[in-house]
Amino acid sequence: MKGWMGKFRALFLLGSLSLILSGCGVDKVSALKPEGYGAELLYDLMILSIAIMIFVFIVVMAIYTFVLIRYRQKKGQEDYIPKQTEGNKMLEIIWTVIPIILLLVLAVPTVTAVFDLAEESSDEADIRIDVTSAQFWWQFDYAGEEISTSQDLYIPKGERVYLTMKSADVIHSFWVPSIAGKIDTNPGDNENTMYLEATEEGVYWGQCTELCGPSHSLMDFRVVVVSPEEYEQWVSDMQNADPEAEPETEVAQEGKEIFENNCLSCHAIGSQPKGVGPNLTNFGDRAKVAGILEPTKENIVNWILHPNEIKPGNTMPPNLVNEEEAGKVAEYLMQLKPSEVTPESAQ
């Protein structure tokens, strides 16, 4: 809460409204439970606009109720002809001027917030991440760190993280309701920017909000907010991840071989140039499989064999390997845990 917006919050009406609304929804998902600079700014703007609107609604409803009760035709009035009033200049002026004032009250903080949220990175030292959307997953490239990952976006608490958004195919939209608003990811040169500044640690639900094909509703991702120290740790772990490292178990070793023969043409491990499919460097740490399934071996196998049944319209080919091979690949993928810092450490 900054500046004059903070004063508004003190007002009783807004405060109580705020209380009622913040009862709605689930933590880390709902825009009504803001835990980030952007989300809080927008929440305050929302509360202000709702308060103004409720005032207007009460005035309209008061006149409305009075009119409907008082002037309902009564028995014996069937032939009564009311006075045919033409209008009233004074009233017309009142209900033109008062709304204009109310709208100005709303317009000023709106414009301020628009410019506030449009801030772009001006310092080389800022954390800058390129976000690329594709049907139906998200790629995150950490510009300065030479880290690529997908689906789980790690950011430090309390720091402003600047995102540059683009799309590999159709238009998508990046939304993490509890931390900030949303912005579209466009194909081509129309790159967009936004920033995230989380005020709490946690695993936040992110969603695609622009219709992008059959699995639009399944294009979830996670934003993992960790402490700045943990974030540093994660960055160095990711940078040091060895894509060639031999897994410990024999099954996983076989899985690695199968993976390299069948999957590596699309999926990258480590910070190589990104493939057409999600980067899997830290797959074993992921909060979800494919953004929506619990990270169990069964789910991974199921996904490898029938990706189209789980996310209709996605481009991963089904049945590239048989069920036994899929099991081994799953073993291999699940042990890809380059960092101590995982979604669990954020909770």
């Binding site: 825009a31 952007g38 989300a39 700014l41 927008l42 703007l45 929302m46 606009s49 709702i50 103004i52 609107m53 207007v56 609604f57 309209v60 409803m61 709208l103 709303l106 709106t110 917030a113 628009v114 506030d116 949220l117 939209s173 309701p177 900030a180 608003g181 949303k182 912005i183 909000t209 622009e210």
Partner: peptide, 22 residues
Amino acid sequence: TIGGMTGVMLAAAAADYQYHDT
């Protein structure tokens, strides 16, 4: 009136970053 009120809320461009496409 409710529809018009939510219309004004949506017009507050920044807040629309939350409302948009929901």
